[in-house]
Write a protein that binds this DNA or RNA. Structure first.
Lengths: 225, 225
DNA sequence: AGTAAAATATGATATATATCATAGAAATGA
DNA sequence: TCATTTCTATGATATATATCATATTTTACT
């Protein structure tokens, strides 16, 4: 069983507040797991009873709408935690988590984490701040969905993807989403998403090569938001 | 200065975890304030440096979209707290709060609340659970905005308003929103909102008398969601 | 009470976006 | 390597919703 002390998740997440003893305890009770691209980590309505640490890879958090379409609420990448909200509320998870790439995740049972809440105030505050950040972001997204056009949301999302996940040597977006997934992030029909990408391409804002997307005119894309 | 011990906010909010001593301290440092309908409690971008307890009345939390339209993110009513997210994140507020009715609110400075976080674990957990609830709700609203039609959102919002704020003796919704406000809750143009209300009226789902709205066919409204 | 301002209502029209249909390209698997 | 499925692309069309215009009603003000 690998140690938690040098783990990337520990560096970047709320877990950075844990001391050496706590980390040793953590390493003992955690379970590691490889998740293949496309695999489900947990599904809406499940009882998870713990949190996941994303050590490597990216996953999407989705919510099923009554119309049968999935909506991508958030992307979660290495260094982040998964399932905090549901653990604290003591409820089933309200979102599904599906790997977008091969992933490495660790699972920490609820009992262990709840102990940290009691004894380590800094840890509690870190978790609280993370969730507050998520809330602020969710409010902002809600307004985006309600008030912005699909075109604006597409531009914004493309910029976000490049900012957050970077680009390959050829300049294309590092993170590989299908058109369908991109559409379900911005909240539109797949065909509309494809059509707009095609428009952006013709306008020289982006370049499409197969499923690779390269942002060509960042300034103009920013102006569209 | 009135006591906090019997206050409605204390009964229903995270503050219920506070003990007698803490409540006495609270009563000493809080400031009370009457807010008239339409008055601004705080505005997006302000530094609030504390939280508000809503003792009476209802306010809307709004966010300005780049297109110049306000979007109502949430309604907050008596017994609830205001400004927790921003206080914890130690950031300016991301939403504006405007009274929809005459209100009575108390302000508690940040220093006081932060003390409770350190010493009272139950209080921390209560706040955390509240914010987690807000996050779950925000995620759900985000998906609603992205995936549901305006008609569905109107039906859902009307049911929500009756559930949450109740009805008058004549059966009409107790909370009085302008059509404009209703539109900015569901994320549509004012005219579209008015038109759909008119449609619902003709279908016998609701009844309109002046600006009063009475839900007539709850079952059918629920089916629409 | 009377007037100005705001809110509600409704029609006409424009526009964005969804849906349906079809075809080609790319990925996957035996 | 070929076949089957999934993904991308684009046209044609339908539909929901926004926008503009105007009238009526309600509210607020002095």
């Amino acid at each position: 069983m690998s140690k938690c002390e040098q783990c990337i998740v520990r560096e970047f997440s709320s877990l950075k507040a844990l001391n050496k003893d706590e980390l040793v305890k953590l390493a003992e009770c955690k379970t590691s797991r490889l998740v293949k691209k496309g695999e489900i980590i947990f599904e809406e309505g499940e009882n998870v009873n713990g949190i996941f640490c994303v050590k490597d890879g990216v996953c999407k958090l989705t919510k099923l709408s009554p119309n049968g379409k999935d909506h991508i609420v958030k992307l979660v990448t290495k260094g982040e935690l998964l399932g905090q909200r549901s653990m604290i509320s003591d409820e089933p998870v309200n979102l599904s988590a599906v790997a977008l790439e091969d992933m490495q995740v660790c699972f920490i049972p609820k009992s262990e984490i709840m102990g940290f809440f009691d004894k380590n105030n800094q840890f509690s505050m870190n978790v609280m701040r993370t969730i507050c950040g998520d809330l602020k972001e969710a409010d902002s997204q809600m307004v985006n969905m309600a008030q912005k056009t699909v075109k604006e949301r597409l531009a914004e999302t493309l910029l976000y993807l490049q900012d957050t996940f970077g680009k390959n040597e050829d300049g294309s977006l590092k993170i590989q989403l299908t058109r369908d997934e991109l559409a379900s992030m911005i909240g539109t029909a797949t065909e509309s998403c494809i059509r707009l990408l095609s428009d952006f391409n013709k306008l020289g804002l982006i370049e499409l090569k197969g499923k690779k997307i390269t942002l060509k005119n960042i300034a103009q894309l920013k102006k569209m938001i």
